[in-house]
Design a protein around this nucleic acid. Structure first.
Lengths: 107, 107
DNA sequence: TTCACTTATTCGCGTATCCGAATACATTGT
DNA sequence: ACAATGTATTCGGATACGCGAATAAGTGAA
């Protein structure tokens, strides 16, 4: 494992943000915040085809946002770091406050 | 100003994440965290053409991550909510811890 | 091994994003 | 009005992304 230089760190930082920039992946992260789930369970919960879920999970796994472990025939995915939910919630707060400000302006 | 429904809120949430998913825009946000700056100053600081900076600023403005105000001939941009820097820093921490875990595995 | 089930990958296509270059638009001073 | 400076937009091409459909690959039971 090499120690990443600053440029590479910025790239990884960007890739994490990119990984969050898809509604399905945000849904997946919130679902995994409730409990670890295997692929089909996620596909059912989000009413989404299994290959689509699998591809999104690959992105999240490559960015180290989720971990996977095989349990018999299924593969269980789990949040790698639950602080990612705090981050998403903080964004929600910023968004909410931003909308509130706009409402005030128009009042 | 309409009250956004849940679907629209999720869309806005995604758009914020997307806005963060570009290295130049992350650089811009960190630069604006130091002080408000006008477009040319940002372009010089980041060694980036002015139209490129202007386009990125438009994205950040549309997502309500920065605000702009005209001051004479120039337009000054400022962070709309400094918590966005906390979010970016939290991502850095998650990233750092993730890399540390990988190092331990290989040790 | 063969079947049933679960997960991952590939292919093709439509769409979105980013950038450089050129140019339009806005503001101030002369 | 005109020139100079600062900012925003458009155009064109390259690249990246997301999805549906089909299929490959991994696992467990009979």
């Amino acid at each position: 494992m090499e120690i990443p230089n600053l440029a590479e760190l910025n790239l990884l930082h960007t890739q994490i943000c990119q990984a969050l920039g898809d509604p399905k992946r945000i849904q997946i992260l919130y679902a995994l915040n409730e409990q670890p789930l295997h692929v089909t369970a996620l596909a059912d919960a989000l009413h989404t085809p299994q290959p689509t879920i699998s591809r999104h999970l690959r992105v999240l796994r490559q960015r180290a946002l989720v971990t996977s472990r095989r349990e018999g025939a299924t593969v269980v995915y789990e949040l790698a770091d639950y602080r990612i939910i705090e981050i998403l919630d903080m964004m929600r707060h910023i968004l909410r406050d931003s909308l509130a400000r706009q409402s005030n302006i128009l009042t």
